[in-house]
């Protein structure tokens, strides 16, 4: 009798571990590769201080919102996100933003060289990573 219970336990144990093994292996490829898009702290600070006031869903201007919504970046399709990141690095490199006219009124929004460089490097690296 004891032998029977032992055999049963062993078989059951084997079976359970086998199903666990199989399900683990079949589930893996089904899991969608989650590409969680996160903005590093220091980049986010630059965004918050220099860009966000015009480029968020609740901002006033229409044109700035059409071009870029920072708070919507994580919801974009991969293709669009790469496109936007490329635009960000281009704009940062050329210091096209914030607009000159705006800076005449609010000079405190001017991107420093370091900030522009950081934004551009981050955007380039992030989009490179997404294309792999």
């Amino acid at each position: 009798m004891n032998k029977r219970i032992l055999t049963f336990t062993i078989i059951a144990g084997l079976f359970i571990s086998l199903t666990a093994f199989v399900s683990k292996n079949t589930q893996r490829p089904l899991e969608k590769p989650k590409t969680v898009f996160t903005i590093p702290e220091d980049v986010n600070t630059i965004f918050q201080n220099k860009c966000f006031d015009c480029h968020n869903v609740n901002a006033d201007g229409e044109k700035s919102k059409k071009k870029l919504l920072i708070d919507k970046l994580p919801t974009l399709s991969k293709a669009k996100l790469i496109g936007k990141l490329d635009a960000i690095s281009e704009v940062a490199d050329e210091k096209e933003m914030p607009p000159e006219k705006f800076l005449a009124k609010y000079p405190e929004y001017t991107l420093t060289d370091d900030e522009a460089k950081r934004l551009s490097e981050w955007a380039t690296a992030a989009s490179d990573k997404m294309m792999k």
Binding site: K66, K67, A79, K80, G83, K84, D86, A87, E90, M131
Partner: peptide, 18 residues
């Protein structure tokens, strides 16, 4: 370059739509 193509395509969509 590929990234620029993606940027340009996004912008074409936006500007033509608007």
């Amino acid at each position: 370059p590929l990234k620029k193509k993606l940027k340009v395509l996004t912008e074409i969509g936006e500007e033509v739509e608007e």
